[in-house]
Design a protein around this nucleic acid. Structure first.
Length: 670
DNA sequence: AATCGTCTGCTTTTT
DNA sequence: GCAGACGATT
């Protein structure tokens, strides 16, 4: 108890922190100090004498888990805080499965397939399964499979339909390859806990107090997992905001939070409504908008920090003008208001919308950062490297094996690989097993056989060395890469020397982080790979790119972030709400998306819409989003960009415009 | 095996 | 309007 007290909490926050036993639902509106409450509640539990080992806090992202860990470490004894389990859903599942997945017929050294690996496998299966005249979009298949898994429909897919057959084969093949995809991590964990009482009870004995962050984003399986772990104690504290549920299309069930009482009867319900981020103009705009959603838990955000400036709705002639106007205005405000580039964010529904903004910002030499885009882990060389590592740990991992079987080229032709793959499919084995099959080898030319034997020997050799006790895995990996001449091959395949250096440095970076991982963990290469597979570069981007610059970000990715000045662009019917949402009946979720966008703003907010927009290459007339009509007139001011930009320069603003221009020119010169 | 050219089809993306 | 996929070409 010593050294811990509840710092400056408002009454609701304090209730949330002090409620220790039984189900607890914390409805935490945007900017209401949620993370603080969670970490303080964990500290409070420990101060009450609860063992930190018995506390589990689950989040969705590594970033959130790390942040919580750091904050807790600053609050209580390090030795104590370390014993608390803070983990993402998926990492927790990996941990559970690595111990007992053999009970489900998988091997404990299973590989984890990311979405790219998954797609590769699905494509392969579709081509093998579909008849000549049959077509199946692999993306559609992937989504359906994911949906099926999230609803635990794994039992007996209808194999008469193509999709059913693909699903069945995909799942069977994953098992042959000793691999699991992201959905499997949850599905198999739930299955394991459901079917094996001993495992279930072991984990129930381990965790007595559960906390779940972003509960509105949990899917069915995640709720099931929590329910299993909570057992009869029902010490489940969930934190979330139904109004910020924007991942329904990925399987998130808002009903988990809306019908929390049905899953965990008689909970304590706490509403956090005092907002510490935005002005009341912004909050009232958000409040009024979201009231139009029928199914929600009523909340009313308020702030003690005053009304602030009205929210602007700015009409543009077209998307070209939208980009120009915003870029110019940011340049101007940076000077006249003394704002930093960092203080501005431009939010949009679709990534494509960032292009024009980007172009304009670049012209004005305004630094910017785009969140999103290609990930470090999508880079060819990174995937290759991880594939080599993965094959050493699980030679049955076909996706990784096929990736590296002839990279760098070692005389195993596409044709040979195709034959091995076909045989492996027929015999229901992995490709690696097929390589040693007599049937496969009998009619192969000597050259091909030599190449294959060389490859098998190479893997055997390094696999053995890797598994020797006390082996230096990092050195072994380096030697493997050197032996196969990977880096030379990589550089040879690059168009420019610069690209070669870039790619090489990705490999070095990866090796370096493995060294770092090894210096503080005993899990070895397996643990490192797990971490890599469950890690999202984009989340780190949000930290790394804290540097100077205007942020360009999608509404989805902006959740959880905040900026002093926000522009939300393309608030048009068809963009927000997106055309597709109307067909799919998910307009409420689009409204929540706008709500999330609005509540990102701390001081000022501008919503823009265009009368014309280039869509799919040609100009299309647009109308303002129907959501704009739902905003409270008393907190809104309407403007027209065309008029502002062509307005005669009056004296006062003339001075500032001149100053802005001057500053701009100085930047160009410098 | 790589590169070029044509076709297609179009949100969002915590792991 | 443009990226990504796929097939034809060297």
């Amino acid at each position: 108890m010593a050294g811990f007290r509840l710092f400056d909490l408002n009454p609701e926050q304090e209730t949330a922190v002090r409620t220790v036993n039984g189900p607890l639902l914390i409805l935490a509106g945007a900017g209401t100090g949620k993370t603080r409450v969670i970490t303080m509640r964990v500290a409070f539990l420990i101060a009450q004498g609860i063992s930190p080992e018995n506390i589990l806090a689950v989040t969705f992202t590594n970033k959130a888990a790390n942040e919580m860990r750091e904050r807790l470490a600053a609050m209580i004894e390090k030795t104590e805080s370390r014993k608390v389990t803070m983990s993402t859903f998926h990492a927790l599942c990996v941990r559970i499965l690595r111990q007992d997945i053999d009970k489900l017929g998988y091997k404990r050294n299973f590989s984890i397939y990311d979405e790219g690996d998954q797609m590769g496998l699905i494509k392969k299966i579709i081509t093998r399964t579909a008849a000549q005249d049959e077509k199946l979009d692999p993306n559609v298949a992937k989504n359906l499979i994911s949906k099926a898994k999230n609803h635990s429909w794994s039992a007996s897919p209808d194999e008469q339909t193509l999709i059913g057959a693909v699903y069945a084969r995909y799942q069977a093949e994953l098992k042959t390859l000793n691999a699991v995809d992201f959905d499997d991590l949850l599905l198999l964990t739930v299955k394991l806990l459901a079917e094996h009482v001993d495992v279930r009870e072991r984990w129930q004995r381990r965790f007595h107090y559960l906390m779940v962050d972003e509960f509105q984003d949990t899917n069915r399986l995640q709720l099931e997992l929590i329910s299993f772990l909570a057992d009869e104690r029902k010490n489940v504290a969930v934190v979330g905001d139904d109004d910020q549920s924007i991942y329904g299309w990925r399987g998130a069930e808002v009903s988990n939070i809306l019908e929390f009482e049905a899953h965990f009867p008689n909970p304590t319900v706490v509403k956090l409504e005092q907002n510490y981020r935005s002005t009341n103009a912004i909050l009232n705009t958000a409040n009024t908008l979201i009231k139009n959603n029928p199914r929600r838990r009523p909340k009313q955000l308020w702030s003690a920090s005053g009304d602030g400036q009205k929210v602007r709705i700015i009409q543009m002639n077209d998307d070209r003008q939208e980009a120009e106007f915003i870029s110019n205005e940011i340049a101007q405000r940076q000077v006249t208001e003394g704002a930093k580039w960092d203080d501005f964010a431009v939010l949009f529904r679709m990534n494509a919308q960032s292009r024009l903004i980007e172009t304009n910002l670049r012209q004005l030499k305004i630094p910017y950062k785009i969140i999103g885009g290609k990930s470090f882990f999508d880079k060819r060389e990174v995937k290759d490297f991880l594939a080599y590592a993965s094959v050493l740990l699980n030679t049955d991992d076909d996706v990784s094996l096929l990736r590296i079987i002839n990279t760098p080229a070692r005389g195993i032709s596409a044709n040979t690989v195709e034959r091995a793959t076909a045989l492996s499919a027929k015999k229901k084995t992995s490709v690696f097993a097929a390589l040693s099959d007599e049937q496969f080898r009998s009619d192969l030319p000597t050259r091909a056989l030599q190449a294959i034997d060389g490859f098998i020997a190479l893997l055997d050799n390094f696999e053995t060395r890797l598994h020797q006790p006390l082996s230096d895995q990092s050195t072994i990996l380096r030697e493997l890469m050197a032996k196969v001449g990977y880096i030379e091959d990589l550089k040879r395949s690059c168009k420019t020397a610069d690209e070669g250096i870039q790619r090489e440095s990705s490999i070095f970076e990866l090796m370096k982080s493995f060294d770092e991982y090894q210096s503080k963990s005993v899990e070895g290469l397996r643990g490192f790979l797990d971490e890599m597979m469950l890690r999202n570069e984009r989340e780190e981007e949000k930290d790394d790119l804290k540097g100077n610059g205007v942020t360009l970000i999608t509404l989805h990715a902006a959740k959880g972030l905040e900026y002093p000045h926000v522009y939300l662009i393309g608030v048009e019917e068809g963009v927000l709400p997106h055309d597709r949402s109307k067909m799919e009946g998910t307009v409420d979720e689009e409204r929540r998306l706008l709500y999330v966008g609005i509540t990102r703003a701390q001081k000022t907010l501008g919503l823009t819409w265009c009368r014309d927009r280039i869509k799919y290459g040609s100009a299309m007339a647009c109308t303002a989003s129907s959501f704009l009509k739902e905003l409270p007139p008393e907190w809104i001011v309407h403007q027209n960009a065309g008029q502002i930009m062509s307005a005669p320069v009056e004296h006062a603003s003339g001075t500032s415009k001149f100053a802005a221009l001057k500053a701009m020119l100085e930047r160009v010169d410098g």
